[in-house]
């Protein structure tokens, strides 16, 4: 049995239009998976369904052996944390310290332990010097890092990033991705929802969604061999793949497919 099992999941707001159609994904512990799709492909709805914010019309979600329903909602949420798109709309506390504490307060963590964890996880995301700062004086990237610290402090094992970088500037985006890489290396399971192909390529595995259904699912190396998949789902090809295609067209026969770093080492 996989760590996270999503089986035949369907969701719709109205009877007419299905937002999610028979989604089935299995995710292993410690995996880094990117769910890629155009606007309106249902990827954010999927994220909200996994954390129990939306109730699926049909199908099931099982996390670490616990089937998600109204009774198990809180115990599943202890395992999964989610970082949303808008840095401002998820900052609950009046200061950084209060915001990191918010989740732990809900889990009834004793005060002494809370203070310890705040110190530890704020340092982890490089926000230890900002503990008494108010959100108005933080940048978008810093607020997202505070959100990550708040979730880590709840000792979650899975973290979903729902287009968490889309409102950040390129520098903050790169910085946040570095932090995500570090967390992945420490064993956290990561589900990244995005429409940025370059960002998605940092994951091990890609799931491409189109019109509420899964269009493709597999290791990124496999999927990159089939450029039609990306074009067929209204996604841009990665820059490196476009470059390689042009080089091939210009007569450089030895360049074929996505240019992995290893291609340059020869």
């Amino acid at each position: 049995m996989s760590y996270i099992e999503i089986k035949d999941l369907s969701f719709s707001y109205t009877k007419k239009r299905q937002i999610l159609k028979n989604i089935g994904i299995n995710i292993e512990k410690g995996e880094w998976i990117a769910i890629l799709g155009h606007n309106g492909s249902g990827k954010s709805t999927l994220a909200k369904t996994i954390v129990g914010l939306l109730e699926p019309g049909a199908g099931s979600i099982t996390v670490d052996g616990i089937k998600l329903d109204q009774d198990t909602l809180q115990s599943v949420r202890r395992k999964i944390g989610i970082v949303f798109q808008n840095p401002d709309n998820q900052f609950v506390g009046v200061t950084v310290r209060d915001d990191i504490a918010f989740g732990m307060e809900n889990l009834c963590v004793p005060k002494a332990e809370m203070l310890e964890r705040i110190e530890y996880f704020a340092t982890k995301v490089g926000m230890e010097k900002f503990l008494d700062k108010e959100p108005a004086s933080l940048s978008g990237g810093q607020k997202q890092r505070v959100a990550i610290a708040g979730i880590l402090a709840m000792q979650t094992e899975i973290m979903i990033f729902d287009e968490a970088t889309s409102m950040l500037d390129p520098y903050a985006r790169g910085d946040l991705m570095e932090h995500i890489k570090k967390l992945h290396n420490e064993g956290l399971t990561i589900i990244m929802i995005t429409h940025e192909i370059e960002e998605a390529l940092l994951a091990d595995r890609l799931v491409i969604m189109k019109d509420g259904a899964i269009f493709a699912d597999g290791p990124k190396e496999e999927l990159l061999k089939k450029p039609d998949l990306f074009q067929g789902s209204a996604l841009e090809l990665p820059f490196s793949l476009r470059l390689a295609n042009q080089l091939t067209g210009a007569g450089f026969e030895e360049v074929r497919g996505y240019l992995w770093e290893s291609a340059f080492r020869k």
Binding site: G81, F84, N86, Q90, V92, G103, M104, N106, L107, K111
Partner: peptide, 25 residues
């Protein structure tokens, strides 16, 4: 829109209105 997002963020961080909580302050 903000309040909706904020409610989502609070809920996913295990906030349940009326449940017992500890306090940092």
């Amino acid at each position: 829109k903000r309040s909706e997002d904020l409610a989502d963020a609070m809920e996913t961080r295990n906030f349940v209105p009326g449940m017992k909580r500890t306090r940092i302050h």
